[in-house]
């Protein structure tokens, strides 16, 4: 393993993570809800209860770039994947997060924060699958 020290951004990574944690804490302490993005969107698609707060939360995420732009230039967003890959990946992420009851936020941030073994297992599984997929794409198929 070689670490790419030029790409390593520990301060902004930790500070950004702390903001994500703060957002999850706000939603939990005031609204009593888990800030799991796939679950929040899933609840919208089910047209069940809590449509209002779910829409408000997603709207908040959507306007984050606009709010950022009031103060500073947007950080880089570089998407190398082609359209067909994006479609396959999107289908897998959408189906997989609902079938597995959570994603990086619900299982990763909130699940680990409440010391859930179930979420720890889920996080290890999707991270392991992510590592394996990138290994296959970049080091086996590309070689």
């Amino acid at each position: 393993m070689t670490i790419d020290w030029t790409a390593f951004t520990p301060t902004t990574a930790f500070a950004g993570g702390a903001l994500i944690g703060l957002a999850s804490a706000l939603l939990l302490l005031f609204n009593g809800r888990i800030a799991g993005i796939s679950g929040i969107i899933g609840g919208l698609l089910e047209r069940g209860t809590g449509i209002g707060w779910r829409l408000a939360f997603i709207a908040g995420i959507l306007i984050a770039p606009l709010s950022w732009q009031l103060f500073s230039a947007l950080p880089p967003i570089k998407i190398d994947a082609g359209y067909s890959t994006l479609i396959v990946a999107g289908l897998l992420v959408g189906f997989g997060t609902r079938y597995g009851s959570g994603c990086t936020s619900g299982h990763g941030v909130c699940g680990l924060s409440r010391l859930s073994l179930r979420s720890l297992v889920a996080t290890l599984v999707f991270m392991g699958a992510g590592f394996a997929t990138v290994y296959v794409l970049r080091h086996l198929l590309a070689a």
Partner: peptide
């Protein structure tokens, strides 16, 4: 379901580099 869902999600995450939250932010960024 937890394991299979996690595997499918992880493969999709590795293919594109997007999980649900970031995909919405990047959509908001145009």
């Amino acid at each position: 379901p937890l394991i299979i869902g996690g595997l499918l999600f992880g493969v999709g995450w590795g293919l594109a580099g997007f999980c649900p939250g970031p995909a919405i932010v990047a959509t908001g960024a145009g």
